[in-house]
Amino acid sequence: MERVATFFVLVALAAVPVLTAIFDAPFYLDLFGRVMIYAIAALSLNLVMGYGGMVSFGHAAFLGLGGYAVGILAKEGIDSGFVQWPLAVGSCALFAFLTGLVVLRTSGAYFIMITLAFAQMLFFLFTSLAEYGGDDGLTIWTRSEFSGLIDLNDGASFYYLVFVLLLLCLGISARLVDSRFGMVLRGAKANERRMRAIGFPTFRYKLAAYTISGAMCGLAGALLANQAEFVGPSVLHWSRSGEILVMVVLGGMGGVAGPVLGAAAYLLLSYFLADLTKHWAIIMGPLLILVVLYARGGLLGLLGGRRAKADSP
């Protein structure tokens, strides 16, 4: 079921540019593009949270850092995506690695708080960087240049690039969690003490997973900045970390594709509910509570695709 649902969601996403062209509704191209970008961010969080048991409440840090890498380079006149994107992903990997050395020494509530703390540090850092927009953020005048390879200013081209990157991240996630590395990650989530007793130095594997996750989320940040042609401290706000977390929980942590469903459900729902009433959070909140209470496997669990991993007796 999970495969079927994922397949249909991906086919639907692939068809969006065609439909928006026919119905002349470019706005939806943006909306679904954003869905896919957040799906990548949620995928990255699911790697550490769903499979590694590390509940990061600071993934907005990577979203923001990836975005600012693009924004700052653009402001300094470096428009090439070949420079911007590897730097965005690389700086996020480095930030994840360095903060991971600290945060992974904690677990549970402490882990949540310290990941939040690092994200807040970045938030205040970029708020105070007056030459790069400070509070107001930074407008990106030109999207990343890929010298004739692809023109990101064309809506459909940009959309399909994001689509391909989403597929890539999905594929990487799927391979990763079933690999030897993935088994260590899952084992450490289930019973870290046992893992150490049978000979796994779990810390380095968790650190690697955290670094990969940060890098993937940094890619989402670079994409987001390009799509919005803007990056500001709001991307780094703690509530953004919370939203990514909600997407993962909503979609379900039992499988690789859960976060994609979660990102789509959350963003589309909040969009259409916001159309209905400006107090849309009043409807969204209880909905989330219902999912958490009655569908612990998230949307994936509702589909019956897989037993929720968190739910074992």
Partner: peptide, 24 residues
């Protein structure tokens, strides 16, 4: 490891002594 099958449990123990696990 309660969620893993019996075979996966033992395979994981084998893996612990079959070189590093940075195999992705």
């Amino acid at each position: 490891f309660r969620e893993f099958t019996a075979l996966q449990n033992v395979a994981l123990a084998v893996q612990a002594h079959d070189g590093h696990s940075f195999r992705f």
